[in-house]
Simulated assay, not measured.
Amino acid sequence: MNQRFCAVESRAIDDPLVGSGTHPERNLLLSWPRSKWQRNLRQASDMPEALLTALHALPDEGRRVNLIHRREQSERHHRVFLMPERQAFDIPRDTLGDFIAALRRGDDLAAWQPETVERSLVLCCTHGKKDKCCAKFGFATYKALAEAVRQRNLPFEVWESTHLGGCRLAASALLLPQLRKYGRIGDDDVLPLLESEARGRPYLPCYRGDSRLTPHQQCAQVAALEWLAAQGLEADVRVEDNAAEADETDRDLVVTWHTGRQEGKLTIRCHALELMRYDTCADLPNGPSPSWVWRAVEVREGTPALA
């Protein structure tokens, strides 16, 4: 019997990447050997119970937790990143609980000797215990990203990561602190993606959206960037959401753009539609379920005309 993968099914039905880039801005990343990861994105099999309880409490306090891994990292000495603070810490396992407690209390963390994170982090989901697509597609992409960074001396640190959302879009990656998400990263995308990000620009063929924006705002943002790219323009954009009703299926969003020498406005019409899809491989035995997605259906120069 042929093995099925949600990522293959997703691509086959043209499930859009755009609009799936949501991710919290405040993050704690904790290095822990991948061999110990459990299905929950914050849990490892050899974690002390008190530490596990503290980590599970952090999302309710406004900070997402992901486990990360790379082979050269010590198993008993943990690398911790705080984003968007761009702080990094090296903490022995026996004092990790004290560090998390201090963080939760809002203590000054100077005693923990924080380092400033100079290089952007590239997190690539390889969380096979969560979804088999992340193992099959994610690990190969992680190795390719890490090797490209090493060979080209690009300004990134690449880490394997637990679940980043959107298993059906594997291989998936997240750039921090930029908060840009990517999906369906293939071999031919690895170097162009990294080179684009090194210039501070999203790589549009795999771009899922700016995590700070809502799904329909991401739809408008990416449509504007693609329109500008077709004109040979590389611009900064800002999405203005003028939709009055939260449940409208058609929205006209104004996107302001500027290049330094040129500027303008675009009106992007985004349309919501229902798609039958598998969100994860665990859904495959039970059949697809309905989900709402956004597609850009029109790009116009200027702002909407008044009624």
Rank of each mutant, 00 (worst) to 15 (best):
G138E: 03
C134V: 11
T126R: 07
L145K: 03
Y142Q: 02
R104D: 02
K143V: 06
A144H: 12
G138K: 01
R119K: 15
D98R: 08
F99N: 01
L121V: 03
K130V: 06
A146D: 14
Y142C: 00
E118N: 09
C124Y: 10
F137M: 10
L103G: 00
D131R: 06
R104T: 05
C125L: 11
A146Y: 02
R104Q: 15
Y142N: 00
T141D: 00
A102C: 12
E147V: 06
H127F: 07
A110R: 10
C124Q: 05
A144L: 14
D108L: 08
H127W: 03
L109H: 08
F99S: 00
F139G: 01
G138F: 01
L121S: 12
A140G: 13
F137V: 04
R104V: 01
C133I: 08
D98C: 08
I100Y: 01
E115L: 11
G106D: 00
T116V: 15
C124H: 00
D108Q: 05
S120E: 15
K143F: 07
A146S: 15
T95W: 12
L103C: 04
K129A: 09
A102L: 04
S120Q: 13
G138A: 11
K130Y: 14
Y142P: 00
T95M: 11
A101L: 03
A101I: 02
W112Y: 15
I100E: 02
E118D: 14
A140L: 13
W112G: 01
W112K: 03
A148F: 10
V122A: 12
L109S: 05
C124I: 10
Y142T: 00
G138I: 04
D107T: 02
A144W: 04
G97P: 00
G138N: 07
T141V: 12
L121M: 09
A140F: 03
T95P: 07
V117C: 04
A144C: 09
G97M: 04
D107H: 10
A146G: 04
L96V: 14
K130F: 15
T141G: 09
P114W: 09
A111W: 07
W112I: 06
L121F: 05
E118G: 13
G128A: 09
R105D: 06
K129Q: 14
E115P: 00
D108P: 00
L103V: 01
A140M: 05
W112T: 04
R104H: 01
R104L: 07
D107S: 10
L145Y: 11
K143M: 09
D107M: 04
G138V: 01
T116H: 12
V117D: 02
R105M: 05
I100W: 00
E118L: 11
T116W: 10
L96N: 05
A102N: 11
D98S: 13
L103E: 03
C124V: 15
V122M: 12
G106W: 02
D108A: 11
W112S: 02
K130H: 15
G106S: 07
V117I: 14
A102V: 01
L109R: 10
C133L: 11
L123S: 09
L123C: 11
L96S: 03
P114H: 03
C124A: 15
C124D: 02
C124M: 15
V117S: 09
D131C: 08
Q113M: 11
A101W: 03
C134W: 02
E118V: 14
E147R: 15
E115Y: 06
K129Y: 09
V122G: 04
L109T: 06
A135M: 13
V122W: 06
G97T: 14
L121K: 04
V117F: 07
D131G: 12
